[in-house]
Amino acid sequence: MTSTLLPPAPAAAAALSSPRRRRTGLGRRRQLTGALLALPAIALLGIFFLWPLTRTVFMSFFDWPMLGAAEFAGLDNYAKAFTDAEFLRAVGFTLVYTALTTPLLLVVGFGLALLVSRRTRAARFFQTIYFLPVVIGLASGSFLWLFMWQSDVGPTTQLLGSLGLVDPAKNIFADYWGALLIVVGMVTWKVAGLQMLLLLSGLQSIPVEVNEAARMDGATGWQVFKHVTLPLLRPTLALVLVFSVAGSLLAFDQFYILTTGGPANSTITAVYQIYRTSFIQFDLGYGAALSLLLMLVLGLVSAVQMLLLRNSDHS
């Protein structure tokens, strides 16, 4: 490309634009520099990603205690996972949580995006406010909500109690649905802004002319939304969905802090159960097998995303 842009190029520039053919020495030096510059990244990814990943696969075939000798166990760990009531319960709960949060986040995020999609200063101001909780950590957000909803001392409990909406003396976290809904509320507060931002950038990338053309052809607002906006927004929708599904399947912090898995271990998620297996029961081999199963599920989610995106290219 550069050679077509610069027809009367001096010799040096010509050599640079095709370094491999003209001067192998220079080309090889650039290759070597490139490899050297990429080396720190390769080293870090090798040590802290590929090595542990390989070890996870290896360990999953062993009975591997934290201390003491490991013993080959074949596929026992995997077989155990499918009959382990505690793990299956955690998987079931994770699915319930995912099924609750995903549509909620999508609807709230979409609503916020439509609300702030006007190109005015006020809209940009509200956009900043709705996005604020996204930059707060999941852990600090959880500690904040833990305090808000405490019985007796929590400001939110007191406020709603004075309005007669809840009993301020009752511990909401002791109830399965109470605890779950507080987590869902916290996550919606914290993540909806991100979904809003992604959907907003999708909405704003749709050319104004497309909507206007549909309007001129006599389409109503709802018809434009359904037949023009939604189909054009499909890649963004797929992305937003995968974000929230993957995030929910990997949930840990919010339950560890807000519910500590209770009441009676009813809000233990898949990652929480892996944590308990590896670091409380010290059954590392079984923990590794569970981790790989989790990875498999997330791989499937990514594959579905690819599929959705590919279809959208053709339609």
Binding site: P52, R55, M59, S291
Partner: peptide, 13 residues
């Protein structure tokens, strides 16, 4: 790949 899935061997590494 979620790093939660390889955290145990990471600890050993």
């Amino acid at each position: 790949v979620p790093f939660q899935a390889i955290i145990t061997p990471l600890y050993l590494v």
